[in-house]
Design a binder for these strands. Structure first.
Lengths: 147, 147
DNA sequence: GGAAAGTGATTGCGTATGCAACTACATGCC
DNA sequence: GGCATGTAGTTGCATACGCAATCACTTTCC
């Protein structure tokens, strides 16, 4: 592993960083301009929405959204204060908590989605063909599933 | 623009976010573990290294590394305090500054590069063929150059 | 030439985030 | 059982970052 990094490989990496940074920044600005919550809030609520029973353990949720445990604790504090989700004690492990999506959380997902999805379309995927999208996904998955 | 976002297009976007987040986090942790400066420091010094005369205006540098102007001001403060670069008054515009890479800055680039590049290899590009790397770069460039 | 509008950089302020330390509970080992 | 070790989540602290306001200078327009 870690053989010498060629120029084309570095170029691919820099391209990925640039695309991600630019698209995320544009979407975040549009969300803020419309008075909507930040992407990370959406990610958390969306992860819950996709989970069985619309609930996850704190640790599972942190892994899902790629946030540190402490970062998630604080974010969940805010989301719970806004009644977008609630913490429940875990029946099988008294150390643990489960986080459950509320109806209001589901509602805010519906409000944010149009802005988020149109940003992804407009700034990320509209310039690609279906074939290119498939190829990009395949390559990224290959990276993710390499051990 | 902003036609409906299909599932495959969303999957590509989420893949990109995940790859970037995971690889960056791993590289940052390794840099921190070795007592080396963070990636953003490297990006700034590298941008200067690549620039003609190893110097750039503050604004050019901010655009290059995708950081806000205020963020760059503060980062350059720290880099200048460590003698990795220095600010010089711009001859043609008294509002402006030029940032110049120092010898020590060049040196730290050489120290960080092995860690950075081996991280990119190991966690990003090693699982791809040359053809896949080329295809990935082509697709990302297409996104970047779409207006 | 000079007022109005624009641009480059910095600073104040609020927020987000990670690491390390901590508490509470769980598991393994004897 | 009971001590040692491990794991779930939270909190203290330091740092990084963006937006809006600001200051200095430049450009535009009359």
């Amino acid at each position: 592993m870690s053989r010498k990094l060629s120029k084309p490989r570095l170029a691919a990496w820099r391209g990925l960083l640039t695309v991600q940074a630019q698209v995320v920044a544009k979407i975040e600005r549009r969300l803020a301009a419309e008075g909507l919550p930040a992407l990370m809030w959406y990610d958390v609520l969306f992860a819950l929405h996709e989970a069985a029973g619309k609930r996850l353990r704190m640790s599972e949720l942190a892994d899902e959204v790629l946030l540190s445990r402490s970062g998630l604790t604080r974010l969940v504090d805010k989301l719970e204060a806004g009644d977008y989700l609630r913490r429940e004690n875990c029946a099988t492990d008294k150390r643990g908590l489960e986080v459950v999506l509320t109806e209001k959380g589901t509602q805010v997902l519906r409000e944010v989605w149009p802005v988020y999805s149109s940003g992804i379309s407009e700034w990320f995927s509209d310039s690609l063909s279906d074939g290119e999208v498939a190829e990009l996904t395949r390559i990224l998955d290959k990276i993710l599933h390499a051990e």
